[in-house]
Each structure stands twice: as structure tokens, then as C-alpha cells.
Design a protein around this nucleic acid. Sequence first.
DNA 1: GTTCTTAATGACCAATTGGTCACATTGTGG
DNA 2: CCACAATGTGACCAATTGGTCATTAAGAAC
Lengths: 234, 234
Amino acid sequence: MNSATGRRAAPRTKRDGGAHALRPRLPTETRQRIIVAEAVRFFAEAGFEGQTRVLAKRLGITHSLLYRHFAGKDDLIERVYREVYLGRWRPEWERLLSDRSRPLEARLKSFYRAYTDAIFNLEWVRIFIFAGLKGVDINTRYLALIERHVLRPVCRELRVEAGLPDPDELPVAPEELELAWGLHGRIFSLAIRKWVYGVPMPRQFVATIDTSVHAFLHGAARSLASGAIAIGRR
Amino acid sequence: MNSATGRRAAPRTKRDGGAHALRPRLPTETRQRIIVAEAVRFFAEAGFEGQTRVLAKRLGITHSLLYRHFAGKDDLIERVYREVYLGRWRPEWERLLSDRSRPLEARLKSFYRAYTDAIFNLEWVRIFIFAGLKGVDINTRYLALIERHVLRPVCRELRVEAGLPDPDELPVAPEELELAWGLHGRIFSLAIRKWVYGVPMPRQFVATIDTSVHAFLHGAARSLASGAIAIGRR
DNA sequence: GTTCTTAATGACCAATTGGTCACATTGTGG
DNA sequence: CCACAATGTGACCAATTGGTCATTAAGAAC
């Protein structure tokens, strides 16, 4: 088993590697897709320290095949990031938020239902947290996207509701942004409870989202309109 | 360097290990305290896959000394858990929440200031998340404590405010508990943003807590009083 | 059928890494 | 000052683990 401890001067004659039984030979592209898909699940469960050999076993292939298709573990992980985070954002979400033909509360509820529908799953959530702990830049990049395409638009709509000047005229204050972070953080904490701590989600998940949005508008957002959070006095 | 690959039948004569220069000889208890303290910081940064040798280097000792003081890496990690989570809970916090001589809003603000003061730090937060991802039972145990000593008391006070029956008479509904989770999750999400994602906290941290509590009482909690969350109709 | 490209394999490599152990050293009590 | 218990060390061990490579064989092209 432990050949590494064996004698060094082994004759090193013919190695015999080579394909044996009936194993599927897949075109490169197909195989890579299969590998990345499984890698996403695997690293989401095991973390990035998960061994490539274990991943290979789950795929029913040898671990050396992984290295034929990917330059190294880091390369594979990079693909995993791309698979999970790229193109997962739907531009219509932002339009949903800004469609003033509907009440803001309805828009926010629709948005968070659609959003959680897309990212509330084991892979997305855990890989996001693993990446954060590891210090990969994915998180800050993603959070910047959220701020730009969700939180700031929300702040703008809040201004409209409160009859306050548009952010173009009067920049969004940190306190206002923090309000929007509050709703977002509250909702994402549901995912953390489930996929990090391992406790079940509330059974009435959608109702919980709706309640959170409602509470946000009648609590946090109201502070804006009432002047409890003073805008423009910065 | 790589002795493992060397010849197996090495004569294995005198080993020469042994203490050398002027190094401090500390009593067991002191040394263990020092090790655990550094291990907390180390594992909080590196995760539990951090190597014992690196920890030893940070301590200025050899890694074998770790194994004289602890049965193994797992034992050390167990001590780290105990160090971080045991006795960190202050019973007076719960009394703070239930002291009806003060307005609920003031009590909640005091509580969350004290609470975040105690656990909002790199070690507590990151080790908590690492443990969660790893599937250690620490999290569920701690969350049960939070539910029992924070969330349920909050629900009881909310009932009082709303003029509704005490939980002893009418059990707390999941929706009510979820309301309290909302505030807690929103506040803890501040810690996650900072120590998991690595983005700075709002500069006005205490003000953010206060705003969150205020919004909670005027948003979420109000749904209770207004009957938007129907109690007793379960 | 033969050729040739390339997917796939298993043996091997070498750095890591948790853990053990014989021996050296320190300082304290008699 | 000497014995001795206990602290601390460096060498070693063996399982892991990311990565390489010569060899094999599937199947498309001719």
C-alpha cells in the first residue's frame, strides 16, 4: 500500500497503466461538464479541502483523469466558482424592483421570492460561505453586485415612497444603505441557518419572506419617511 | 528532506532529540492555557484544517510539544470549542430582556449591545461558522440556547406589549418565533459581513443595532399586535 | 481492416501532515 | 549537590494528497 516507503532503487520497469474494462469514452467537453457539475456538489459539501481522489471516486473515474481535464485543483475550483456565480444573476430582477406600476411591497416580495428561488440551495450558499472564509474575492465582488443592483435600487424606491429627493440629487447615505442591508441580511440568514447550521427552514418559507418585506417597509423604511433617519444632514 | 522515501532499513541508531538553548519551561497548566489561547486565534483564521505545525511555530514551540499536552488535534479543537463557547453566556442578559420596569425597546437595545459586545469578534464568529460547515453539534446546541434564552423571552415580551396571552397559556407559534429570529439574524448578519466576507461594519455600529431594534418593534412586532400574524388560530 | 488521435488508466512521485518516541535539559526537593 | 520528575526537542513514521507520466485501447477517419 505505502509504496512511498519502499525501496527507492526499484527497477522501474514497464508501467502498465491503461484503460481496461468497458468505460465510457466521452468527448472532452461532455466530460468536463460532468466533472464540474459533480465538483460543485462535492466542494459544497466537503469544502475546498475535499480530496480530488474522493471527487474522482464519486464520478466513477480515476483522479488522474481530473488532471487531464483541468490544470490543477485550483483550476477546477475556479471553474466551480464560475459555474455557480456567473450568469446566475437575472437582469430582469432589477427591472422587477423598479417597476413603479406595482406597489413597492409587491415588487420586493416578488424579487425576494425569485432571488431566493435561484440561490437558496446547498451549492450556492455553502460555496459562498466557504469562499468567504477562505478569503477569495468572489464574495466582495458579488456583494458589490448586490449593492449596485439590489440595495441601491431599493434605496431609490424608498426615497420615492417617502417623497424624498432621488439619489441622483442627494446621494444615498450609509444609514439608508444599511436599512436595505438589513432586509437582505435577514433573508439570507434563513439560508445560513439551513445550510451552515443545519437547522430546518421555517415551513412557511414564502410567508416568512413576505412578512420580512412587510416588516421592513413598516419598520425600517418608515424611519426614513418619519425623519428618524435624517437624510441630507450629512 | 523527504525521509519517507529513503531506505527503510536505516540503522536507526541514537536519535538525538533533546532540548537545547534557553527556552522557557512552563508548568503544564500555564503552557496549556497559552496553547489554547493561540489555537483559538489560529483555527479562527485558518480553519480546522490549519496544520498543527504552523500553530506550533506561532507559539514558538515544536509541534510535538502540542501532542504532549493534548491527546490529538481533535482534543485540541475540542478545547478550543469549550474556550470560545462555554461560559460566554451571561445569565443577566436574560434578566435584562425581562425587566418590565423598562420599555421593551430599551431592553432590546441594551441586550443586543451587550450580546454583540461579547460575541462580535473574529474568533467567536469564524469558529462558529467553521463548526457549522463542518457539521459539529456546537451550532445546534448554541442555537437551542439562543431560542430558549433570547427568542422565546422576546416572544413573551411581545405578547405582553400586544396585550395577548402569555406563552404559558397559548404556546408561541412558529411564526412568532420566526419574527424574533428575524431580528437576531439581521444583527448576526453584520458579523458575517465583517468576519466571513471581509467587508467593514457600518461605522455607526451601535446606531445600526438601535435602528434594527426600533424597526423590529415597529415593523415585525407590530404585525403581531395588528393581527396580521394570527395567534391562537393554529 | 488499418491507422491514428486521444480519453482513460494505474503506478509512481514528493511534499504534507497528524502522530510517536528516545533522549536531552531544567529546576526542585531531600 | 544529587536524584528525579517533568518539560521540551528533533528525528522518524506512515497515511494523505496534489500532481505526473508511460501505456492502453476506444472509435473516428480512411
